[in-house]
């Protein structure tokens, strides 16, 4: 809602209902982050544990084939959605092969 005016009292739906489901996607929480998780696609074993444990649904499953340097074929990959990742580090801690690096955000 940055820059935009909030609706006036007579424009609000009765009961203050929000008619657009899931519109919190307009409110990125990625700027909360002080540490950034980076997934190493070479090391990743695609167990999906980071996707399961992420409280913010900030891990995306990308349905694109990926070939590692050692010649292993994967049908999909996981990526961090930095628009919403709050940088809690649960994925870093829970990754069974330690394929997620946690680096400080520097601007």
């Amino acid at each position: 809602m940055q820059g935009k005016q909030l609706p006036k009292w007579n424009e609000i739906p009765p009961g203050g209902a929000i008619l657009e489901p899931g519109n919190s996607v307009k409110r990125p929480t990625g700027d909360w982050r002080t540490f950034r998780p980076i997934i190493d696609k070479e090391k990743c074993v695609r167990c999906l544990l980071c996707w399961v444990y992420c409280p913010d649904a900030a891990i995306k499953i990308i349905d694109e084939p990926y070939r590692t340097a050692s010649g292993k074929e994967w049908k999909f990959s996981v990526e961090v959605d930095y628009t919403f990742c709050k940088g809690c580090g649960i994925c870093v801690e829970e990754c069974p092969v330690k394929a997620i690096e946690f680096v400080e955000e520097v601007k």
Binding site: P21, G22, N23, S24, V25, K26, R27, P28, T29, W32, R33, V52, Y53, C54, P55, D56, A57, A58, D81, T83, F84, K86, G87, C88, G89, I90
Partner: peptide, 16 residues
């Protein structure tokens, strides 16, 4: 069905 962008604390398991 729970969109990201909610303001639960970082690391709050309730989201999961």
């Amino acid at each position: 069905y729970l969109a990201p962008g909610h303001s639960l604390c970082a690391g709050c398991v309730a989201g999961m």
